[in-house]
């Protein structure tokens, strides 16, 4: 923390940008902020990334606040600008959900909306110039700050696992525990090859949250990494490299949020569909 302001090597700067503000129990038994990734690794599971949680809750709360305000004042007549914007998002989600998910559920469409807007907002944090918030926080004595929650694998996997839990919940609810087990056991090769079926289906099932969470994490982490690398170059190169990458990154930001939402809906559709076997 005292190293801010002094000259750092490139690898130090990169490592600093990629380190979360983690709160947990130190080796010596005291609780506090971790200094460096080795410290974080020692803390193990019982630690929390304050920066990720802060920005994640802030952005999710912002989304819900704005949408709730609009929902409260939603008029059937001519909508205002804010309501128009919100309705655009809602309609986009609703159309997508309708085209992929043909069951009745009061949860799936709102979940898709939440996932999309939340991930989109978290991704958008990537466009904030890379040093702005960490330096600002540094002035207040915060040693580390990762502003893009979706570059934290905990956040993306947390969401992916939640989707997975909802998926398994609805699978069992729609098909019954037996039906769900049968789907896992008898699927590709018939009843004779039960162990092979089970193996394939379980791998298939577990790959869903893994690919969902890691895809988002990987894309955003890589994008963030390139911003960091660009930031290491001389200052006069910034407009020529940072700006084009940021513009291109807008596509990734939107696309990854959209993919996350679409896959969530697709998984829900699979959970709701009862196979005829």
């Amino acid at each position: 923390m005292s190293s801010t302001g002094e000259t750092q090597s490139s690898s130090e700067i990169i490592a600093h940008h990629l380190t979360n503000l983690t709160y947990g129990r130190h080796d010596d038994g005291t609780w506090g902020i971790a200094h460096g990734s080795a410290d974080i690794a020692e803390m193990g599971f019982m630690a929390i990334n304050l920066d990720s949680m802060f920005f994640s809750l802030l952005l999710g709360g912002l989304f819900l606040l704005v949408f709730r305000m609009v929902a409260k004042r939603a008029t059937v007549g001519v909508p205002g600008r804010m309501q128009n914007m919100v309705e655009m998002a809602v309609e986009m989600i609703n159309d997508n959900v309708k085209s992929m998910f043909n069951h009745k559920s009061p949860v799936v469409a709102p979940m898709a909306l939440t996932v999309f807007m939340w991930v989109l907002l978290m991704n958008v944090m990537d466009l904030v110039p890379i040093d702005f918030l960490p330096k600002l926080a540094g002035l207040f004595g915060v040693p580390y700050l990762k502003v893009v929650p979706t570059t934290d694998v905990n956040v993306t996997m947390g969401m992916a696992l939640s989707v997975f839990i909802v998926m398994v919940f609805y699978s069992i609810k729609q098909k019954g525990a037996g039906g769900f087990a049968a789907e896992l056991s008898f699927h590709p090769f018939g009843k004779m090859a039960l162990p092979i079926n089970l193996f394939l289906e379980v791998v298939n099932l577990l790959s869903k949250p893994l690919s969902l969470g890691l895809r988002l994490f990987g894309n955003l982490y890589a994008g963030e990494m390139i911003f960091i690398l660009i930031a290491l170059l001389p200052f006069w190169t910034q407009p020529f490299l940072s700006v084009p990458w940021a513009i291109f990154h807008i596509l990734i930001i939107f696309l990854q949020a959209f993919i996350f939402m679409v896959l969530t809906v697709v998984y829900m559709a699979q959970a709701f569909t009862v196979d005829e076997h």
Partner: peptide, 13 residues
């Protein structure tokens, strides 16, 4: 590193 952030995020979700 996986830590409680995962759980926190899931609860928030």
């Amino acid at each position: 590193n996986f830590n409680m952030t995962l759980v926190g995020q899931a609860i928030s979700f």
